[in-house]
């Protein structure tokens, strides 16, 4: 892991090619470049096509990839369309956890009562992912693979201690969320691997949870968002705490210091305020057009206090 100073420098460099801004903005394009369009009928076929076509990319919902292609920020040699693979379209409860196939649309996951029953944070957060027409086409696994540092679902996967299943020519491997998101728009997926599913674990029994986000406009990427999962013992003291945030660093991050400060706490106002102050230290994103670092810290502290309060209200003690 990069030291804080390195991370800031990397982030600044990266901003120059982040999202839709690039230095050569004078070259305007809105039509995608040429590519080979390949339809995969099975995961195996998709993975084979990925190996056989260097520079190919997986196309699921395309809601991040196609705008990047329209702007010619992405020029894959081929697109491998996995949206017709039935096996990847299902939401399954496996070992009590929610397994989301690579072709599952955000909107289907949002509307899945089974998924909601196991991990309600997904629906709560999905409500903040762009707007319904985008969620109707965009896939949750696609969003995880796109790995925008301000995106909600990578943060929820991290918060929930989930993982993705990567499949390549040599078989499958499970990548925990903590090891998957490397940097803004960068993951540890290998070039010849496809993420076939993501698993969002069930919330611990009796846990309280909350999600809070601030964006300049409805549906925009978060300026900052925080999620929390709290468990309390019989005395009402915090037995376990998980918090994660996005929009504040070059990838979604866990707020470990905040978590540690909360364990054993009975969530007095002072303790919650202190937790908010601790959260500020997690902000490494430099000033940008939407927020200065100082404001982001203030915002993150506010949102952190809010989710701790909301989550604690939902806790079933003991």
């Amino acid at each position: 892991m990069a030291a804080a100073g390195d991370e800031l420098r990397m982030w600044r460099n990266f901003q120059r090619r982040a999202r839709f801004f690039r230095p050569d903005v004078g070259e305007c394009r809105v039509k995608p470049p040429l590519f080979d369009y390949l339809v995969a009928r099975s995961s195996d076929e998709a993975i084979r096509l990925l190996s056989d076509n260097p520079g190919a990319m997986i196309l699921a919902g395309g809601q991040s990839l196609i705008p990047a292609m329209n702007f010619r920020l992405a020029s894959p040699s081929a697109l491998i369309d996995i949206s017709r693979i039935a096996a990847l379209k299902s939401i399954d409860i496996v070992d009590g956890n929610v397994r989301v196939g690579a072709a599952v649309k955000h909107r289907d996951l949002e509307q899945s009562d089974a998924a909601f029953a196991v991990n309600p944070l997904m629906r709560t957060a999905l409500h903040y992912v762009a707007h319904v027409p985008i969620r109707n086409r965009g896939t949750t696994v696609g969003s995880l693979c796109h790995a925008d540092a301000a995106a909600e679902m990578p943060m929820i996967l991290l918060l929930s201690d989930g993982w993705v299943m990567a499949e390549g020519p040599n078989g499958q491997r499970k990548i925990p969320a903590a090891e998957f998101f490397e940097f803004h728009m960068t993951t540890t997926r290998e070039a010849d691997e496809m993420i076939v599913s993501a698993t969002f674990p069930a919330l611990p029994s009796g846990a309280g949870y909350a999600f809070a986000e601030f964006a300049r406009r409805k549906g925009d990427y978060a300026v900052a968002a925080v999620g929390a999962i709290l468990e309390c013992d019989l005395d009402g003291r915090v037995a376990a705490a998980r918090l994660a945030a996005c929009g504040i660093a070059s990838r979604p991050i866990r707020l470990f210091d905040v978590e540690a400060s909360l364990v054993g706490a009975n969530l007095s106002d002072a303790e919650i305020d202190a937790a908010g102050e601790l959260a500020k230290e997690a902000v490494t994103a430099p000033d940008d057009a939407n927020a200065t670092t100082a404001y982001r810290q203030h915002l993150l502290a506010s949102l952190t206090r809010r989710v701790i309060r909301e989550a604690s209200e939902k806790v079933r003690k003991g």
Binding site: L59, G62, Q63, I66, S83, V132, P133
Partner: peptide
């Protein structure tokens, strides 16, 4: 609307 759901036609290839 694609298959009954609102969608951006600029973020979909015709082949899809």
């Amino acid at each position: 609307m694609i298959d009954g759901r609102a969608a951006r036609s600029c973020l979909t290839f015709a082949v899809q």
